[in-house]
Write a protein that binds this DNA or RNA. Structure first.
Length: 522
DNA sequence: CGAGCTCCTG
DNA sequence: CAGGAGCTCG
């Protein structure tokens, strides 16, 4: 039977080796158990218990040093992912199986050889991080680490920890050591930070990936494609990737994304750094992971055109805002992240707040200058009354906006787009009615339950928090019938056949309610 | 000539 | 939804 690699102890870094494994097992990664305990809160390293159930024993076998190469079974999947990403070019780090690794694998055809190779590769990675540049990392791949080696590595880690403390203290006290020794000290500490970051990032990924926590149902789980886990979408993984300084970290054959992530600009005096992706879409996605309070804050700032406000609507606005501000309204050369500052406050991401602070200020300024998603939402609701608003009406309804030629044309463009969608829907449903064999134009009606109205309402009133005026239904019905008649008599052969319809519809505009003219919409 | 509109495209 | 081309109109 193929081992169940998704069972407990395999999908969490804290489990896959820390739980049920001894410190000796940990040493095979050259990570100091003590250091791990201090790095990963809540993770405890408990000694192997002989009283464990047979099941546990079997699972523990995967991280037992007596079974070389098997204690990082998850790296099997990681390899798949890593190889895949080589073609996509998504990652800066790549898999570079060493010659030593290849020859080793070819010499042994047994199952154990594969496991040993994987174990060796993992060991190699860790060693590459802790050893000085220039050391041939492939050496360790075929040599089983001895007990004394492991102990030496532990001592080395402790020594690095001391150096780090020393560095911290020297910085705090303003002590100026020689640049050479200090840089050497920093280099060592950086490497140490790398090894810490590995455990943190892996742990973070595995803990936050629900898919990974789903127990397998059968042996086929062995063949699960790692790409389906979307690890690259992990909030940590998708952040900026680059190696620290000039220290090129050779990471071979293992899930590399998380590793590369954490080595971005290591900061000696801070916890694991997080650099927010300065991409508007990603920002939105990250915001979506935030807590409800953040959304509540947005909600409170919403334009209240109807009777109610909904969470959904608020969120929608956030997502659209980046687009609204991204074009003509925005100052040239300004690349801001359109994330609500209040939202950022509620994200509890201190580093994120720091990174985007200036950007937020900039964005706030522009929100006051240009059109916001609230304006867009308001414009859409206005469309229920007027399809062809005059400039005067626009100025009255958007009096909180400084009207420039650019703003005016953007508002006009919005309504032009609204009309476009409106007429496209009308033509579509009119043709559909003809296809269905509708012969009497009077049977064409537009009610609130009709498909046509649902489509329109979804477009202009997505949150469905606005009571669409009855008049709009009437106008929609008239428009539908106009299209139906025109098409049925073959007017649609004329390239400008819609103009006559437009001429009719533009006369059916209503007055925009006073609330639209008095309400602040930004 | 500029404003406003439609149509097409991304 | 925005940009751009092309058109109409005052």
């Amino acid at each position: 039977m193929i081992p169940n690699v998704w069972s407990k102890g395999m999908y969490s870094s804290s489990n896959f080796c820390l739980e049920g494994c001894t410190a000796e097992h940990l040493s095979s990664f050259q990570l100091d158990p003590m250091a791990l305990n201090s790095i990963v809160p809540g993770v405890s390293i408990s000694p192997h218990k002989s009283s464990d159930s047979p099941k546990m024993l079997r699972e523990n076998a995967y991280c037992s040093s007596s079974d070389p190469g098997s204690n990082l079974m998850f790296s099997n999947r990681m390899e798949l992912k890593s190889t895949r990403d080589q073609t996509s070019g998504r990652l800066s780090t790549r898999s570079h199986p060493s010659p030593a690794s290849n020859s080793f694998c070819h010499q042994n055809q047994s199952l154990n050889s594969g496991r040993q190779a994987k174990r060796a590769r993992v060991e190699n990675i860790i060693k590459c991080m802790s050893d000085p540049p220039g050391v041939d990392c492939s050496d360790v791949m075929t040599n089983r680490r001895s007990e004394s080696d492991a102990m030496q590595e532990n001592e080395r880690m402790h020594e690095l920890e001391k150096r780090k403390l020393l560095l911290d203290q020297s910085e705090l006290s303003g002590f100026e050591s020689s640049s050479k020794s200090k840089s050497q000290l920093m280099a060592d500490v950086l490497k140490y930070e790398l090894s810490k970051a590995v455990s943190i990032s892996i742990d973070s990924i595995f803990q936050s990936s629900p898919l990974l926590q789903m127990p397998p149902k059968d042996e086929d789980s062995e063949n699960i494609d790692m790409s389906s886990l979307n690890l690259h979408k992990h909030p940590l993984v998708c952040l900026g990737l680059s190696c620290c300084g000039n220290t090129e970290v050779q990471v071979s054959d293992v899930q590399t994304e998380a590793l590369a992530l954490v080595v971005e600009k290591p900061q000696l005096h801070r916890p694991t750094p997080l650099i927010i992706p300065v991409d508007k879409n990603q920002a939105s996605e990250i915001s979506h992971n935030s807590n409800q309070n953040a959304l509540k804050c947005l909600q409170d700032g919403c334009f209240e055109a109807g009777r109610t406000k909904t969470l959904d609507g608020s969120w929608n606005m956030l997502k659209v805002r980046s687009k609204v501000n991204s074009r003509s309204v925005r100052s040239p050369g300004c690349h801001s992240v359109s994330v609500d500052p209040i939202l950022l406050e509620n994200l509890h991401l201190p580093q994120v707040k720091i990174e985007s602070n200036s950007v937020v200020k900039n964005n706030m300024y522009m929100l006051n200058e240009g059109l916001t998603t609230n304006h867009l939402k308001k414009a859409k609701l206005m469309f229920f009354y007027t399809r062809y608003p005059s400039s005067l009406v626009l100025k009255m309804c958007f009096h909180d906006v400084q009207f420039t030629r650019c703003i005016t044309s953007q508002l006009i463009k919005w309504f032009s787009n609204f009309r476009e969608f409106y007429y496209i829907q009308m033509e579509k449903f009119a043709r559909h009615a003809l296809m269905e064999g509708v012969s009497d134009v009077r049977s064409l009606t537009v009610g609130r339950e009709s498909e046509l109205f649902r489509a329109l309402n979804m477009h202009y009133n997505k949150a469905n928090d606005f009571q669409v005026p009855e008049r709009f239904l009437e106008v929609a019905e008239i428009t539908l019938r106009e299209f139906y008649i025109a098409i049925s008599v073959g007017k649609d052969h004329d390239p400008s056949w819609k103009k006559a319809i437009y001429k009719v519809i533009c006369k059916l505009d209503s007055d925009v309610p006073a609330e639209f003219k008095t309400q602040q919409s930004g």
